[in-house]
């Protein structure tokens, strides 16, 4: 078992947040988390990435408690919806900064630049890049330390068709490389093409957890996209 979540919860006010939720994730799964805006998807992901401190519950990743942040950060790579990079600086600077803080040799930066087709943009300031390219840099940065678990919050939001296809290709190649991936999405075709398991959150509660086939035949899917 790679990820064990037991009664994790976060409440912002009476109608928002995440009710106590439990589930397990096995290594190599590609999980799509689906739900309306405010259903608690991003809250769940941000808690797993240590961006938000949960009100209660426990999370174990590869047997390590989420509270042990220094150890957990090497296990989890989080890619938020909006790329959070140092805009003033180049792609290379951003990757090298995080490589230094992760104590990773710069050779890995070169490999990431090559793997993500970022070599032509290495000296370009991040602020001059399109959102799709920024998202590629963001994913590359998350993969610097080669974490076994990747968490992506709406990775294709606001991207054009070509960039969306590029992100799908990256996700598939990372999944093929044996990584466990959890992502949120509003796009049914994205969920259908990528996910090996689907979880549905509604008003902060987990109301469905199963295979894509079962989900697309269920009433939940119809209600969600009615």
């Amino acid at each position: 078992m790679q990820l064990e979540i037991h009664n994790i919860a976060k409440r912002y006010d009476q109608n928002r947040g995440l009710a106590p939720t439990s589930f397990n994730v096995v290594k190599g799964e590609l999980i799509a988390i689906v739900g309306h805006n405010g259903a608690g998807k991003s809250t769940l992901l941000k808690m797993l990435a240590s961006w938000i401190v949960p009100d209660g519950g426990t999370v174990m990743i590869d047997g390590i408690d989420l509270k042990n942040r220094a150890a957990i950060v090497r296990k989890v790579g989080f890619i938020p919806e909006d790329p959070n990079l140092f805009d003033f600086f180049s792609v290379e600077y951003n990757l090298k900064l995080f490589a230094m803080l992760n104590q990773i040799p710069f050779l890995r930066v070169e490999a990431i630049l090559d793997e993500f087709n970022l070599l032509p943009f290495r000296k370009t300031k991040v602020q001059a890049l399109s959102k799709g390219l920024k998202q590629r840099v963001n994913i590359g940065r998350a993969l610097l330390s080669d974490p076994p678990l990747l968490i992506l919050d709406e990775p294709t939001s606001g991207l054009d068709f070509e960039m969306t296809k590029e992100i799908y290709r990256l996700l598939n190649s990372m999944h093929d490389a044996g990584k466990t991936i959890i992502f949120t999405s509003h796009r049914p075709e994205e969920i259908k093409n990528l996910a090996t398991r689907i979880m549905v959150l509604h008003q902060g509660s987990l109301i469905f957890d199963g295979l894509p086939g079962a989900y697309f035949q269920s009433e939940i899917h119809e209600k969600l996209y009615a």
Binding site: A49, S50, W51, R69, A70, V73, R74, V76, G77, F78, P80, D82, N84, L85, F86, D87, F98, L101, N102, Q103, R141, A142
Partner: peptide, 14 residues
Amino acid sequence: EKKLLLALLQTPIH
């Protein structure tokens, strides 16, 4: 605001 601090906290820094 730009979530840069959270990005830095995704590394092993204390």
